[in-house]
Each structure stands twice: as structure tokens, then as C-alpha cells.
Write a protein that binds this DNA or RNA. Structure first.
Length: 575
RNA sequence: CGGGGCGUAGCGCAGCAUGGCAGCGCACCUGCCUUGGGAGCAGGGGGUCGGCGGUUCAAAUCCGCCCGCCCCGACCA
């Protein structure tokens, strides 16, 4: 491709709309443009990358035995009413009416549609197992789209659904998808980690998220460098028991603490570390208030709380409710003397001696509180976020916390949708059973963004070879020089002939402009034709990632690139 | 939905307090010059100042309503 005829509007400065690096660079490199909040157009360069990722996904899905389909984006309300999600899904589901006033939605995911298809067509155990997938546009009316392609409303997703007759079959399908995902993200040149994930309200029994490791990730992962334990923080078990020093219980005492509310302030007021405090959070759990005790230096994990109480909806109580229950403004709640409210606690509270709690009256705290001497707790649960240095729940060595971007999610669904929609099959004995399902997603457009988060420097993007929009940037530094143009033309032809994807910057621009642009769009190699060729017939080949430079004769450069790219591609496929 | 910020040429921004010719840099077009890291000179084109309404002799500027975008939070299969 010649740059002179290519639509590649690069920007010299960061657009003001972008905050994170991948968003800035995709805009600057002329890959995407915003149409509305969370909705983007792909320009030619961006589309090339997207297609490369799609093709890797497609190849690996096909290799795994999955079959590609294409399902509608526009979906009738009836299906969603049948699964119960028309009500349950909330505002993320974009709904509208057609001209006949029938309700429709834009598909945020396709369990309903695929299950509907299967229930109509699959009758027998002989039709199973089956894995279908598509690579298509999804729409979720996100409450707050952000970071460009990272959390868009309209985005490209690969979603796959497996159909099996029994749990063992599901386990096999799940394993196959899991392995396909490992191949996909490896081939994309990403550093990633599969972590155990929350199964959420769907309630399946196993789920993993594939996380691209990046500082800017929205997710926090707890990983154990020792035994390989890895889990999303939502799920990661905090350490199970705590060693507190032996300490005699001192008498309970109420102390005035005028306007001292926050944990740090209370700790500072009494001159003790926050770990000697127990904070009392009032939650409304399915319309019933519950007091939750957490050690002062710990952070409550709402997903865990929800699970521990088997609740549908939980929310921190508002100031009015807190006042009603504790007889004090927010900041002075405590377990002592708290009536008519269930009190539960994080496991770290057990065994703690002589700690500080709110007194359930304005401007007062108790010191030297002790359990069970001073109050009752109905149950101890794992309710807090694991923290750095927490002991691994598997091997009891210290955990690390790292950040990641969720690019894939595999999930054992079970029979939730097959039962709701009546997708059944007959076994050998003529008995009817619900089909056992799994679902498997990859955020394809998000993967492109994640790749940039992980592969860039101050000059721009550094594409991994397998998803680079082109392999080589051919820079002719002076297009008015006939000699340079001739050798460039020859180089261009032979590279194309060898199926090396080359973007030839044949514009009449000064060298600096071409270098900056090439670095910005981040092609793995720059092949520079300039003065050096006029002097001694050589060209310069520079690797974008390392800056490593080779001075070669033009034909040597072509054969080097051919070998290098082929071997790197093979490496990327290695397994 | 709550809090904060922003909206002026394709991009980045100034001007707004104290109303009075709509500006700067880059980009774009023409010419000259230059060709190894975002050159230089000269000339030029491009604006409903987010929209609607109000105040005023006069509004980018003041007032009201609305829209859009970004950030933080809440929320989130």
C-alpha cells in the first residue's frame, strides 16, 4: 500500500477527548474516530488490526471445532421475556419499538438467540456436542462508556456457546475453549493471565477471565507467585485465619470523639493503627438492614457480601437509614447495643482484642471492645478484598495484586437458558434432558486497545507482528530523487511479491515527518531509503521495538525481512 | 443518577473577569526553497464562537433553558 493514496489521518497532538494511552494513540494513529459517546468508526488502519485479531480468533475457534454463525443484532422482546432478562437486564439493554409498535432490543449478548435456534433444531443426543460462535457487533448501553474502545457501548465481540448432554461434555467443551483462548492471546503477542472469576448472578459453577496485564486495567487480580493461584479480586479468598497476639481483655470504655468519623481520623485520635479499629457498615440487603463488621484497615467486597448472604440486591444504607438504626449520624455505628439488626463480620474480626468501635451515639466511640464479651455476631465470613501480602488461600505464601484488562471470559452456564427456553434433547433411552451450556466471550475491539496498552512507548504504538496493520514501513526520504524512488519502487514490489505487508511512505514530506508517523503507527519494521543508498547502495532496517538497526543492500533487506517475519509468525503459532 | 471540568476553523488552544473588527500554533491550498527525526520564506482558503431564547445601540463575552463531550463516584452480564 502506498501512503500517498491511503486514508491515514494522523494527529500531532493528543486529542482532548482521550485520557488513556490506547485511546490517545488510536486516535492519533488514525485508527478510529468517535461518532458518539462509546461509539466509534474504524478507519482503514484500525480496521486492518481489528481484522487481524478477528482472523486469529476465527482460525483458533475453527481449529477447536467450533462453527461460525452470524446472529441478529436486533432481537425481539419475547425471547428476553422468556429468559426473564427483559426485566432483569436493566438499562444496559437498549430497547425500542418497530413501526408496528413491537418491542425489540439491541443484543448485548446472544444466549437467548442461540438457545432459541438450538431448541428448534436440536432434538437428539446425536446432535451433541456442538459449539457455535460468531464475531459480531454488540450493543450495551453502558452507564459510563470510557477509554475509547476499552469500554464502548458498541463493540466487536466473539461469542461462543457450547451445547452438551452432560457435565463431562461441558467440562470438555470448556477446556477446549480455554485452550483456544490461550492460543489466541499468545498469537496476538499479549502477556495475559487466566484467573478464576465470579460467576455472578448466573450462578454457574466455574468461570475464568483472561486478563491482559496492564497498569491501566480496570480489574485487580490476586496472584500467587509461588503456587500459581490467580483470581479476580472479586473472588479471591482473603487469608483464612489470623494470628493476634495474646492480650488480656481490658474493661470497655466510652470515649468522646467530637466529629471524628473516618477510620484514619479515629485511629489518629486514639493514636493506634487502623487495624485496631472495627468499622461497622450498615447495608440494606434485599430491603433488610444488616450491620457488617470489617477491620479498620480492610476493604469490604460487595460481591462477597452478596454471596455470603445469598442476596439479590445489596446497597450501602443511606444516611437516613443509618441514623434510624444506630441513633447516630454516619461515622459512629458500632455493634455494641445495636438492636433489631443482624450483625455479621469478616473473619479478620475474630480473635481481635481490645479494639475500637462506634458507640451508636453522636461523637462517641468505645475502646477496648471485645467479642464475644460485648456483643453478638451471627456469622463470620470472608467479606473483604484480599490485599497485597495476604496469604494465598491455596499455599499460604504472600499474594501479589496486579492490574489487568479483561479480554476474554469463559463460563459454564449449565441449564439456565436451556431450561428457561426449553432447549432439550432426547437421550438413547428416549428421555428428555435440558441441554447443558457454556458461553465464551472475547472482546475483540477491546483486545486491540489492550494490545496498545501493553505495547507502546513515548513515540507511539509498537505492534506485535501478528496483529500489526502492516509489517514494514518503507520510508523514501527524498521522493524527488529519481534514484531513491527507483530503488524504493523495486523494494516495494519485491516485498509485496513475498507477501510482506508494506506501507510505502511515498509522500513528498520531509524525513522527520515520515519517521514520526512511522513510529506513531508502530509497524514492526522501518525500511529507510535515503542518503546512505546514494553514497554506498545500502538501506537501513530498523526494528520498532528494540531500535536495533541493520545496514543492508536492498535485496538483503528483503530476504532478511522475509525470513524474520516467517520465523516470528511460526513462533507466534507455536504450541 | 450525584459531583467536577469542558464546548471558539480539521487538531491543540487564547479571547470571556470589565460586552465593541473572531485570534494564535499546527494542519490545508499556491509559489519558492529544503530533504536522515514533526524545516524556512511569501501569499491564501476555511468559523451558525454547541443550540435556542433573553438583556443590550451592540453578545463568543452577561442571564436562562437545552444539547453534547470528558473525568471521579454510584451502577454494571
Amino acid at each position: 500500500m502506498k501512503r500517498s493514496g491511503y486514508f491515514l489521518p494522523t494527529l500531532r497532538e493528543d486529542p482532548s477527548e482521550a485520557e488513556v494511552i490506547s485511546h490517545k494513540l488510536m486516535l492519533r494513529a488514525g485508527m478510529i474516530r468517535r461518532l458518539a459517546s462509546g461509539i466509534y468508526s474504524f478507519l482503514p488502519l484500525g480496521l486492518r488490526v481489528l481484522r487481524k485479531v478477528e482472523n486469529i480468533v476465527r482460525e483458533e475457534m475453527n481449529r477447536s471445532g467450533a462453527l461460525e454463525v452470524l446472529l441478529p443484532l436486533v432481537q425481539p422482546a419475547e425471547l428476553w421475556q422468556e429468559s426473564g432478562r427483559w426485566e432483569a437486564y436493566g438499562k444496559e439493554l437498549l430497547r425500542f419499538k418497530d413501526r408496528k409498535d413491537h418491542d425489540f432490543c439491541l443484543g448485548p449478548t446472544h444466549e437467548e438467540v442461540i438457545t432459541d435456534l438450538i431448541r428448534r433444531e436440536v432434538r437428539s443426543y446425536r446432535d451433541l456436542p456442538l459449539i457455535l460462535y460468531q464475531i459480531a457487533t454488540k450493543f450495551r448501553d453502558e452507564i459510563r462508556p470510557r477509554f475509547g474502545l476499552m469500554r464502548g457501548r458498541e463493540f466487536i465481540m466473539k461469542d461462543a456457546y457450547s451445547f452438551d448432554r452432560d457435565q463431562e461434555g461441558l467440562d470438555r467443551s470448556y477446556r477446549r475453549m480455554y485452550e483456544a483462548y490461550e492460543h489466541i492471546f499468545s498469537r496476538c503477542g499479549l502477556r495475559f493471565k487466566a484467573v478464576m472469576a465470579d460467576t455472578g448472578t448466573i450462578g454457574g459453577d466455574e468461570s475464568h477471565e483472561f486478563m491482559v496485564l496492564a497498569e491501566t486495567g480496570e480489574d485487580v487480580l490476586a496472584v500467587c507467585p509461588h503456587c500459581g493461584y490467580a483470581a479476580n479480586l472479586e473472588l479471591a479468598e482473603a487469608q483464612t485465619h489470623y494470628e493476634y497476639p495474646e492480650e488480656a481483655e481490658k474493661p470497655l470504655e466510652k470515649k468522646p470523639t467530637p466529629n471524628v468519623k473516618r477510620v484514619e481520623d479515629v485511629a489518629a485520635f486514639f493514636g493506634v493503627p487502623p487495624a485496631k479499629l472495627v468499622k461497622t457498615l450498615i447495608y440494606v440487603v434485599d430491603n433488610t438492614p444488616v450491620a457488617v463488621l470489617i477491620r479498620g484497615d480492610h476493604e469490604l467486597n460487595e460481591v462477597k457480601l452478596k454471596k455470603a448472604l445469598k442476596a439479590q440486591r445489596i446497597a450501602l444504607a443511606d444516611a437516613e437509614t443509618v441514623q434510624k438504626i444506630t441513633c447516630a449520624p454516619v461515622g459512629f455505628a458500632g455493634p455494641i447495643g445495636l438492636k433489631h439488626v443482624k450483625i455479621i463480620a469478616d473473619r479478620a474480626v475474630y480473635g481481635l482484642k481490645n479494639f475500637i468501635v462506634g458507640a451508636n451515639e453522636p461523637d462517641a466511640h468505645y475502646v477496648n471492645a471485645n467479642y464475644p464479651r460485648d456483643f453478638h455476631i451471627e456469622g463470620f465470613y470472608d467479606l473483604r478484598n484480599a490485599t497485597k501480602g495476604d496469604l494465598c488461600p491455596r499455599c499460604a505464601k504472600p499474594l501479589d495484586l496486579i492490574r489487568g484488562i479483561e479480554v476474554g471470559h469463559v463460563f459454564k452456564l449449565g441449564t439456565k437458558y436451556s431450561q428457561a427456553l426449553g432447549a432439550n434433547f432426547l437421550d438413547e433411552k428416549g428421555q428428555e434432558h435440558p441441554i447443558i451450556m457454556g458461553c465464551y466471550g472475547i472482546g475483540v475491539s477491546r483486545t486491540v486497545a489492550a494490545a496498545i496498552e501493553q505495547n507502546h512507548d513515548q513515540d507511539g504504538i509498537i505492534w506485535p507482528l501478528n496483529i500489526a496493520p502492516f509489517h514494514v514501513a518503507l520510508l523514501t526520504l527524498n521522493t524527488k530523487d529519481q534514484n531513491l524512488m527507483e530503488v524504493s519502487e523495486k523494494l516495494y514490489q519485491s516485498l509485496e511479491k513475498d507477501h510482506i505487508e508494506v506501507l510505502w511512505d511515498d509522500r513528498d514530506e520531509r524525513p522527520g515527518v515520515k519517521f514520526k508517523d512511522a513510529d506513531l503507527i508502530g509497524l514492526p519494521y522501518k525500511l529507510v531509503v535515503g542518503k546512505r543508498f546514494l553514497q554506498n547502495g545500502t538501506v537501513e532496517l530498523k526494528e520498532r521495538r528494540t531500535g536495533e538497526t541493520k545496514i543492508l543492500k536492498p535485496q538483503e533487506a528483503v530476504s532478511f525481512l522475509k525470513e524474520e517475519i516467517e520465523s516470528k509468525k511460526a513462533e507466534g503459532c507455536a504450541r
